[in-house]
Design a protein around this nucleic acid. Structure first.
Length: 477
RNA sequence: GGCCCCGUCGUCCAGCGGUCAAGACACCGGGUUUUCAUCCCGGCAACCGGAGUUCGACUCUCCGCGGGGUCACCA
């Protein structure tokens, strides 16, 4: 269902890192652009000098790049409608503000912040919404740039369509004389984004729910400016894991890049993000980026907020890991190996990976899952003393069993098949339960609470290592 | 408080007047001749409430209730 090429944008303010909520907004905008063969634009909305955090623009871009949300125009690469950083576009805003002044649709705010605050408090006291236009001055001073410039609104009710929320309505009381240009010369978001979206020829404005209440104001401004408005799409919030509050940094929402560092797969994260609030109507759960691009539609986006469930993310990441080819997985595993793996060869590491791929939930688990492949762990009596089968067996008997096992294993050529055969024979010969015999050998050779299948593990470990470890345990018994 | 949005298993969600209300995550049980995991099978579990419209409502309308957003010289 490809429509005309869309120009969508993601316009974060560089005030910190990005969490899943913000990134999902970017993802949906990106999907629309890619689906229609249009452009995805990155614009930095750095008009609040007080809240700006140094370096966060770059940090945000890093997050987007990691996810694979590449942009076609942006502050770093430029483009035909630049600059893409609002602080570099001050002249443009002033120009458009001036047009509004000339039309009689903007005026300087003569009040001091304290006076406005007094109006606000009065409204609050009376449990009324605060409307600046109730105090609109009759003869405002000329705008000299030292006072805020306000929009002279034309309050009236609006009905409009939102690509996600459907048909929306708001009364005239939703419209007010909001500030266009602050007294420091910077535009507000409310003004700047309208101008930028126009000049950058954005066809869609995809943003989160907190802006929905301001849309009537924007509609009023579009009219005053006599410009067409883009498609509006309002996304529901992503909620925190336990409450109903929207996900926020304050509640411990993680930085998107933390997931990158923890070894989550970007395609899994993308899949997860998309699944929060969107589905294609089928029972498919796992989607590739290509499938998402092909199947995504704003019309199918959920209207209600979705709670962030890290367990689902974990499952999904594991599911994506299992779809990776051995070579691909190996490539991505770089940087996640335990210290002991430093000297290990590529082939050995690939073999290890082959054994743990199906139990890996995210790459950050690699050290705990594979440590014993690379170094002899200290013999840990706890492992067999607390084992539900082994603890019932006398220690002397364990030792005897392990000695028999050693003899058997020593004769193997250490292919997984041969090992399996010999181990099974031993099982019959000793008359032991597999839960006892195999657990014993597994613990002896790994000293780990869990490991991949016994024969496979032994085969990768090799004869020398296996026997050495059995001997170490033997002397401890 | 005004305005606006939302309301299906614990969670993510399917449903778009007639279904035994589906699937997935999580959880529980079983199987895949050791463990953990994968995989397979099975189980648990939901339409916020009340009216109305209709032969028939999870689906439509209204009223409640609940949750969220907003009412900044932040975005």
């Amino acid at each position: 269902m490809n429509n005309k090429p869309a120009r969508t944008r993601f316009a974060p303010s560089p005030t910190g890192y990005m969490h899943v909520g913000g990134v999902r907004t970017a993802l949906f905008a990106w999907l629309i652009a890619r689906q229609t063969g249009g452009q995805f634009i990155l614009r930095l909305e750095d008009t609040d000098k007080a809240r700006e955090v140094a370096g966060s623009g770059e940090h945000i871009m890093k997050s987007l790049r990691w996810l694979g949300l590449t942009w076609d125009e942006g502050p770093d690469i430029g483009g035909p409608h630049g600059p893409y950083k609002q602080s570099d576009r001050l002249g443009t805003y002033k120009e458009w503000a001036q047009k509004l002044v000339e039309k009689g649709r903007a005026y300087a705010d003569p009040y001091t912040p304290e006076e406005v605050q007094a109006f606000r408090e009065e409204a609050q006291k009376n449990k009324r919404p605060f409307l600046y236009r109730n105090h609109r001055p009759e003869h405002p001073p000329a705008w000299d740039g030292t006072k805020p410039l306000r929009f002279k609104s034309d309050p009236k009710p609006y009905d409009w369509h939102d690509a996600v929320m459907g048909d929306l309505h708001a009364g005239a009381e939703a419209i007010d004389d909001f500030i266009l240009i602050k007294s420091d010369g910077y535009p507000t978001y409310n003004f700047a984004h309208i101008i930028d979206d126009l000049l950058m020829e954005c066809t869609h404005v995809i943003r989160a729910q907190e802006f929905i209440a301001s849309v009537p104001n924007y509609l009023n401004l579009y009219e005053a400016l006599e410009i067409d408005r883009p498609v509006l799409a309002t996304l529901p919030h992503i909620l925190g894991p336990d409450g109903n509050k929207k996900l926020s940094k304050r509640d411990g929402a993680k930085d998107m890049l933390d997931y990158a560092h923890d070894g989550y797969l970007p395609e899994a994260m993308m899949n997860f993000l998309a699944s929060m609030g969107w589905n294609d109507g089928t029972e498919q759960e796992i989607f590739t980026a290509g499938e998402l691009i092909q199947k995504f539609s704003l019309e199918r986006v959920q209207k209600a907020g979705a709670r962030f469930d890290e367990q689902r993310l974990l499952w999904m990441d594991g599911a994506h890991i299992r779809t990776l080819s051995p070579d691909d997985l190996y490539k991505r595993s770089e940087g996640y190996w335990p210290d002991g793996a430093n000297g290990a060869g590529d082939d050995f590491k690939k073999q290890v990976l082959g054994l743990v791929q199906e139990r890996l939930k995210y790459l950050g688990e690699l050290p705990e899952l594979t440590d014993f492949f690379f170094r002899d762990l200290p013999v840990n009596p706890q492992l067999w003393q607390t084992h539900k089968q082994l603890k019932k067996v006398e220690q002397g008997e364990l030792k005897q069993l392990l000695e028999q096992a050693r003899t058997t294993i020593e004769q193997s050529d250490f292919t997984a098949g041969d090992l399996t055969d010999r181990l099974n024979n031993l099982l019959e010969a000793t008359g032991q339960k597999p839960a006892v015999l195999f657990s014993l050998i597994r613990i002896a050779t790994t000293q780990a609470p869990a490991s991949p299948g016994l024969a496979d593990t032994l085969a990768v470990l090799g004869k020398d290592t296996s026997l050495r470890r059995i001997d170490a345990m033997l002397s401890a018994l």
